[in-house]
Nucleic acid binder design. Structure first.
Lengths: 246, 246
DNA sequence: CGAGCACTTGATCGCTTTCAATAGCTGTGG
DNA sequence: CCACAGCTATTGAAAGCGATCAAGTGCTCG
C-alpha cells in the first residue's frame, strides 16, 4: 500500500491550498476545516465511488487524476468530468453519488465528512463563494465539451483533448505557446474514447494519424511532445490565433 | 411590440418567484433586488446577447424559451443550454458573454444591473446559495447531455430531447407518467439539431420514424402527443422503469 | 517462455451526413 | 381568389466517417 504518513499534512504546505474549495478561507476557517478533514489514497484503477451509492464525504483531489463517468445499462459509457488536483468531488446537499468516480492514477484525496462540511458551508460564505466559482468554471468546461462531443470530427476531438490536458497542467507550470510542450497522458486509449464519445480503435487511429502528420510525437504510448501548440489548436478547430496571417 | 405594462410586475405575483435566483430571498432582500431590477422583452428569433459582448446585466427568464449556443468559425454550432422560465442568464464576476443567447419564442426577462447585483450577492448569502444550487443543477443537466451527445443514436437523441422537454414543463403542471402527455415543441428542427449534434435532415427523419412507430403523434410540426411516457423513455435509452415487466 | 493487457492496424458495415428535390404553410400583391 | 415568394420541414439517393469485427504487435509480469 502506498499510504504515506498522511495525517501529518498541513494546509499551509498543501499543494492545492490556493486553488481548491478552501482557497478563500482564512486561518480560522482552515482550523475548522482541518477538524473535519482526513486523507484517503486510491490506487490507479480503483473505484472511488459508484453512482447511486451514498456518499459520506465530499473532498478535493490533492494529487493524481480521476474520472467522472456515466454508464447506460447496455454498457455504453461517457466520461463527464476529468478530475485533476484541486477539483472538488461530491455535491453538498445530495446524498447519492450521481456518477462513478474512478482513479486513473494513484490519487490522494482530502475528504471532509459531509454533514459537518455542509454545516460549515452554511456558516462560512468563503467556502460557498469559492464553490460557486469552481462550479461555474466546471459548467463552462462541460459546455465547451458539449461542442466537442456534438460537432467535432474524431481528429478534432483528439486534438481538443490533448489541448485541454496541456492547458490544464500548464496552469501549474506556466508554459509558453510556441515552444515544445512535453507531457504524459494520464488516460488510457479507452478512457480517451470514453471522454470523446469514440471507440478506442478510432482514438488509436487518430493518434497514429496525428503522429504521422507531425502534429505530435509519441514515445511509448503515453509520453507526448507537441512541437507547435498553434498547430495543435488548429487541428482542434479552436483556431487559436488563426486568421492572424490573413 | 408586445411589451405589457411590465414595470408594474410585483415579485409576489411573479410566476418564477419560488424557482429563480431570488427563491430563497426574504421580503427585505426582495426590496433590494426590486431596486435594481427591470424587465425586458425579446421577440422570437431575436438575439439577446452575442458571445464576446460585454454584458451589463444578469437576469432570469420569466417566460418564453431561449437558447445558449456556441459556434465555430466554419459555422458549426452546438446548443449548450436551453433556457426556460426561472433559468438564470449571465455569470457574476465575468464581463463578456461566453455564448450566444437567442430567444426562440417571445421572452420576458427580469434583469439586474450587473455591478449592483454582484454587490448584493456579496452581502446576501441567500442569493449566492440559491445560485450555487441552480448552477449545480445546470452542471448535472450538462453532464446528462454529454452522455446524449457522446453515446446515443439519433433516434435515442430525439427521444431524449422530447423526454427532457416533457419533464421540464411537467415540473410546472404535475403530470402522471402513464397517461397521454401533450405539448408544443418550443424549437425548430434546426434548433433541435443544434441541441443534439445532428443535422436537421436527420432530426426530421427520426421524428418521422418515431411517428410511424407510434411513439409520438404529430399535429402540424410542433404539437406533439406522447401516448406512453414509458415507451418514450425506453426509446431514449433511459430505461425508466425498464425491466419492470421481466 | 507464455499469459495478459494495452494498443495498433486492417477490412467491412452501417448510420448519419451531404446534396438535392419536393411538400406544406404563411403572407403579399395582382 | 389565386399566384408566387420565402420559409420550414420532409423525403430520396449517394457518399463518408466512425463503428464493428478481427488479427496482430509489443510490453510487463509471473
Amino acid at each position: 500500500m502506498n499510504t504515506p504518513n498522511i495525517n501529518s499534512v498541513n494546509c499551509n504546505s498543501c499543494p492545492i491550498r490556493h486553488r481548491a474549495v478552501c482557497a478563500r478561507c482564512n486561518a480560522d476557517e482552515l482550523v475548522e476545516l482541518d477538524a473535519i478533514k482526513y486523507y484517503r489514497t486510491y490506487e490507479a484503477g480503483q473505484t472511488v465511488i459508484w453512482a447511486g451509492d451514498i456518499m459520506g464525504f465530499v473532498g478535493s483531489v490533492v494529487s493524481g487524476v480521476a474520472t467522472l463517468t456515466q454508464t447506460m445499462e447496455d454498457g455504453r459509457t461517457q466520461m463527464v468530468g476529468l478530475l485533476l488536483p484541486s477539483d472538488f468531488v461530491g455535491r453538498p446537499g445530495r446524498d447519492g453519488a450521481a456518477y462513478n468516480v474512478v482513479a486513473t492514477t494513484n490519487v490522494v484525496m482530502c475528504c471532509f465528512r459531509k454533514k459537518p462540511f455542509e454545516d460549515l458551508m452554511e456558516r462560512t460564505p468563503h467556502i460557498a463563494q469559492r464553490l460557486l466559482v469552481m462550479t461555474l468554471d466546471e459548467l463552462d468546461a462541460a459546455r465547451e465539451w458539449m461542442l466537442v462531443l456534438g460537432r467535432k470530427t474524431a481528429r478534432e476531438k483528439i486534438a481538443s483533448l490533448l489541448s485541454i490536458i496541456v492547458r490544464r497542467d500548464a496552469s501549474l507550470q506556466s508554459t509558453g505557446l510556441g515552444e515544445n510542450v512535453v507531457f504524459d497522458l494520464p488516460l488510457t486509449r479507452e478512457a480517451m474514447a470514453d471522454y470523446l464519445g469514440l471507440t478506442l480503435e478510432t482514438v488509436s487511429r487518430q493518434m497514429s494519424a496525428l503522429k504521422r502528420d507531425g502534429v505530435i510525437k509519441l514515445e511509448g504510448k503515453r509520453h507526448i511532445t507537441v512541437p507547435s501548440m498553434g498547430r495543435l489548436l488548429e487541428e482542434a478547430g479552436d483556431d487559436s490565433d488563426g486568421g492572424f496571417i490573413g
